[in-house]
């Protein structure tokens, strides 16, 4: 869809509906840091945020700061906006990334031609008016 075809009444981009489990994640992104829950019992890092460890069900955890470095596990290139609020955004790439600390996360990449299997990427942070987005870019050689 060409940008000119987008009605000026396009709804605004959504803002994350944070909850008690996820608030520290979003707060950290706002400071351009990547923090995820790490289970005190089994030490696995998890995403998305949830109150219990999905691997061992333990509730105790700490918020661990991560390197932001990882490799692409899978990706798609979105060519069709499935909701009107994203009509001006297409095309864009979404990548799932295996971070060095052993957890898989998802984010966008700006260049739709750059995602490739096992590509080394690093976290970037995009500030929106009300929240900060985790985005990925190709790691410099």
């Amino acid at each position: 869809m060409s940008p000119s075809a987008i009605p000026s009444t396009a709804p605004p981009l959504p803002v994350p509906e944070r909850d008690r489990d996820s608030a520290p994640f979003w707060d950290a992104l706002r400071e351009h840091r990547l923090r995820l829950q790490s289970c005190d019992a089994c030490e696995r890092v998890r995403f998305p945020a949830m109150s219990r460890c999905p691997y061992c069900v333990a509730p105790e955890h700490r918020w661990r700061e991560l390197s932001g470095r990882g490799r692409i596990y899978s990706w798609i290139v979105v060519r069709q906006a499935f909701r009107p609020e994203f009509a001006a955004e297409v095309p864009y790439a979404l990548v799932t990334v295996d971070l060095e600390e052993g957890v898989r996360v998802v984010g966008r990449m700006d260049d739709v031609d750059s995602p490739a299997f096992d590509l080394a990427v690093v976290a970037a942070y995009v500030d929106h008016p009300e929240w900060t987005e985790l985005r990925f870019e190709e790691m410099a050689a």
């Binding site: 994350p16 909850d19 995403f47 499935f82 994203f86 929240w131």
Partner: peptide, 14 residues
């Protein structure tokens, strides 16, 4: 959903 929707990772086909 709160982790996907704001990214435009919205719909099941994706």
């Amino acid at each position: 959903t709160e982790f996907r929707y704001p990214l435009g990772f919205v719909a099941y086909p994706q």
